[in-house]
Design a protein around this nucleic acid. Structure first.
Lengths: 166, 166
DNA sequence: TTAGCTGCAAATAGTTTGCAGTTTT
DNA sequence: AAAACTGCAAACTATTTGCAGCTAA
């Protein structure tokens, strides 16, 4: 792991990158958007619009959810974040990580973690070869299971896909 | 591929399996459910509730969508089908294939195909090892891209995730 | 200036749910 | 008979959209 800089500095760097990309795309750099970008990055994971909205509200009490929806969609169009449609989660999640990886979701507590492994690239190549598809590089692969924490706690009583947490 | 039996016979066999599983689970075997099971299997792919409903309406003009939703969810609980939450598709799809495989979705025309490859198993093992998760065996992996047909037709003008068909 | 963005409110629509009557076992 | 299921309609809610006023460039 390369943790040469403190988290805050890395976050700020990413936020700056987002703003630069917005500018390059001819989009306006509004204070709301800056706050939303910051919220997305600082969420440190896989935020939903509701989470982003709640976070941004601290600095912009009057902001509307529609603005968050709009901005998040703009960021997605620019390829800066990707959508994660997770089964049984009421809200759509977004991921700052755009390189091919796997999102592993706990069926019980709803936790989402990113996993990187060479087998992802192998899978992409194999699937592209077999299907003839031109696959999107930012594959938002999702796998479901029970996380170590819930396994230990014995929280995995039911094997179905009922929604326990988020 | 092992196509020893005609499609219709294989379908009927699967329908029978579904009905048997329903019975074993202590569920009732109603004519509506039989029709829904048949519709799911005969849809030959990745049906939505709307598609199933439309198909079942032929034999049960008075059936309600709620019944389809209920039954489909029951089948899912029993592990006979899996849910596919596909980005930008308005309806939830279901897949009769429950073995680990990849669903490849065309961003342009919405087509969904199943791809089997040993790399899927490798991925599952690697992810399970790295994450410590107990992964669900019926991994509904989804990848996005442009299908060969749309590639040829040059239909892939836009690289974003806007919804074109489906 | 002016095209684009924000915020508010209303609309959209897939899915879920409550309930009364019906049916399988 | 009893629990389960069906069908209808109403409810739910995340997301989208229209529009008037603001604002970054």
């Amino acid at each position: 792991m390369s943790n040469l800089a403190p988290a805050s500095a890395r976050y700020e760097q990413t936020v700056q990158r987002f703003l630069d990309e917005l500018e390059q795309a001819g989009k306006r750099k509004t204070p709301q958007r800056a706050a939303i970008c910051r919220a997305v990055v600082e969420s440190g994971g896989h935020p939903t619009v509701a989470e982003i909205y709640q976070r941004v509200t601290r600095s912009f009490p009057m902001i509307s959810q529609a603005t968050v929806y709009n901005t998040v969609d703009t960021l997605r169009e620019l390829g800066l974040i990707i959508r994660l449609d997770i089964a049984n989660h009421d809200h759509t999640h977004y991921d700052v990580v755009t390189e091919p990886h796997v999102n592993v979701v706990c069926r019980y507590c709803g936790a989402i973690i990113d996993v990187y492994d060479p087998s992802v690239d192998a899978l992409l190549e194999a699937v592209a070869g077999r299907s003839g598809f031109s696959l999107s590089p930012e594959a938002g692969l999702i796998l479901y299971g029970i996380c170590p924490h819930c396994l230990t706690r014995g929280n995995h009583a039911r094997g179905d896909g009922s929604s326990p947490a988020e």
